[in-house]
């Protein structure tokens, strides 16, 4: 029977989930250091309890630990995200006006994202950046898929309202 205590399995669980746990905590609180700590902490707990946690349960176990770690403890900071430089090596045919406009739009989006409630922002970014399905996000957050859909809907709605100045 496979067991999380086996280093092979533990290592693959680590590699499969650590990045998403990092992002998950970062999207919530905007603190990189805490997000790194959360990854270590969650896996320490998993390692300590490796005999009790099956590989199938490992993922939700990790998110529960990471989530509980900072529950009500740290105040959300500004979430700073980078933009992939898609145009760097390509020859840009766009007009300077378009590029400026795009830059301004990204600025607006940044601000709007920071103003979102923590759970809406986390859902939106996990879906957009990490490509997580609603079902996966629901598992991480321990809520129903419908609740995640609601968060996603509200996130988009407020982002758009904020950006269009409604």
């Amino acid at each position: 029977m496979s067991n999380v205590c086996e280093e092979q399995i533990f290592g693959s669980v680590f590699k499969a989930n650590s990045k998403t746990i990092f992002n998950y905590i970062y999207y919530k609180f905007g603190n990189e250091e805490k997000a790194n700590d959360a990854v270590q902490e969650a896996f320490v707990k998993l390692w300590e309890n490796c005999a009790k946690v099956t590989p199938e349960k490992a993922k939700s176990y990790l998110y529960t630990v990471a989530n509980n770690l900072y529950l009500n403890v740290i105040k959300a900071e500004k979430v700073r995200l980078k933009y992939a430089d898609l145009h760097s090596n390509a020859i840009s045919n766009e007009s300077p006006e378009y590029i400026l406009e795009e830059k301004q739009f990204k600025q607006k989006l940044d601000n709007a994202l920071n103003d979102l409630p923590e759970n809406q922002r986390t859902t939106f970014l996990l879906n957009r950046i990490d490509g997580k399905k609603y079902a996966e996000i629901a598992e991480m957050e321990g809520v129903s898929i419908k609740a995640i859909e609601k968060r996603m809907h509200l996130a988009l709605k407020s982002l758009r309202e904020k950006i269009d100045g409604i």
Partner: peptide, 29 residues
């Protein structure tokens, strides 16, 4: 609103989270 929603989708496609190196995190662990 559709135009703005499309813009949000396109812009958010380019978003990136801070760097996280799973291998070195595992070494640390």
């Amino acid at each position: 609103a559709y135009a703005t929603y499309m813009k949000i989708l396109n812009a958010s496609k380019q978003l990136e989270a801070p760097n996280f190196d799973a291998d070195s995190a595992y070494e640390n662990f």
